[in-house]
């Protein structure tokens, strides 16, 4: 089946003023590759500050003016240019943002769902969308500050599900929710995928991602270091040492941390950004590391775990 979204070696950098009128390029995302197929939930897991939200903004074409994007993007098989992004976003490609702050605080929920139109079809559609997520008609009359955290999240999903989207990008949809509401919210994304859409779930919570995702892309210091099937985690079929370290740090597994911290943007050299913390690193890791097929997934490492099958 043709993938809904294909990202090939995407990089995003910012132009910054360093001293006076001297400009420097600050690379934030360096080489990011991933694929989302119809009916699939693909999770992008990375820690805060690794550039995850920028990925969403890069795909939707809402990056700030001082940024620069390189690499190839394909949406439904066609190249995704800035022009096309503007055409499809909000319709075939929707974003479920992080929090209520993305809603207009001075506008009731209803009119925000109708997108400026007051005719019967829009009203009917918004009602069905709200009802689908267990929200009554009265929610249309509420202002964003009157919504609880879980309700706000469902309203945001409803705005996305209003149109029949082909690709849903969800940016950190669960923080601040208790385990039950979080699972319910993630269930809604799974439903959207079962309806044939592709879902790109951006999160820092590996555990929750594994409960609904089919595939997981692990993100470290602006690079995808591994793409794996969600089942690979439980079966111990991991590839990159960073993924292994994440898995071992889960409280129900070893709960063992590795020393050091993730390098920030601009602190990364040519080689593998994980090398300074890596138990398997060697001098060759300071050079360029290719992204390769490995053991049924993909990995960016010269010394990955496991034998080739």
């Amino acid at each position: 089946m043709e993938p809904i979204l294909e990202v090939k070696e995407l990089s995003i950098s910012f132009t910054q003023y360093s001293r006076g009128t001297m400009q420097t390029e600050l690379p934030v995302i360096r080489s990011l590759s991933l694929t989302v197929a119809p009916g699939q939930v693909v999770a992008v897991v990375g820690s805060s500050g690794s550039g995850k939200s920028l990925l969403a903004h890069g795909i939707l074409g809402i990056l700030p003016y001082n940024s620069h994007r390189a690499g190839e993007l394909f949406f439904l098989g066609q190249p995704l240019t800035q022009e096309r992004m503007e055409q499809v976003r909000g319709k075939e490609m929707v974003l479920v943002p992080q929090g209520v702050t993305y809603l207009d605080p001075l506008m009731q929920v209803g009119p925000q769902l109708w997108k400026g139109s007051r005719d019967g079809t829009h009203r009917k559609r918004s009602r069905t969308a709200l009802a689908r997520y267990g929200l009554g008609e009265e929610v249309e009359g509420l202002y964003p500050f009157e919504l609880s955290g879980g309700m706000a999240r469902r309203v945001l999903i409803a705005t996305a599900a209003m149109e029949q989207p082909r690709l849903v990008i969800a940016d950190e949809p669960t923080p601040g929710l208790d385990a039950r509401s979080a699972r319910r919210v993630l269930g809604h994304f799974r439903e959207l995928a079962e309806g044939g859409a592709g879902v790109l779930l951006i999160t820092h919570d590996l555990e929750l991602a594994l409960t609904i995702a089919h595939r997981v892309a692990v993100f470290y210091a602006g690079e995808t270091v591994e793409e794996a099937e969600a089942s690979d985690f439980a079966e111990g079929r991991l590839r990159h040492p960073y993924t292994r370290a994440l898995w071992n740090a889960l409280p129900q597994n070893g709960f063992t941390p590795i020393p050091g911290t993730q390098p920030g943007p601009g602190e990364v050299g040519e080689g593998c950004p994980f090398a300074p913390r890596c138990p398997r690193q060697g001098p060759e890791c300071l050079g360029k590391v290719p992204y390769m097929e490995w053991n049924g997934g993909r990995v960016r490492c010269l010394h990955p775990e496991g034998e080739t099958v």
């Binding site: 820690s47 820092h204 994440l246």
Partner: peptide, 13 residues
């Protein structure tokens, strides 16, 4: 809650 797994484990240990 907002930190990645490895940092979480570092802090709790």
């Amino acid at each position: 809650a907002m930190l990645d797994l490895i940092t979480q484990a570092q802090i709790w240990q």
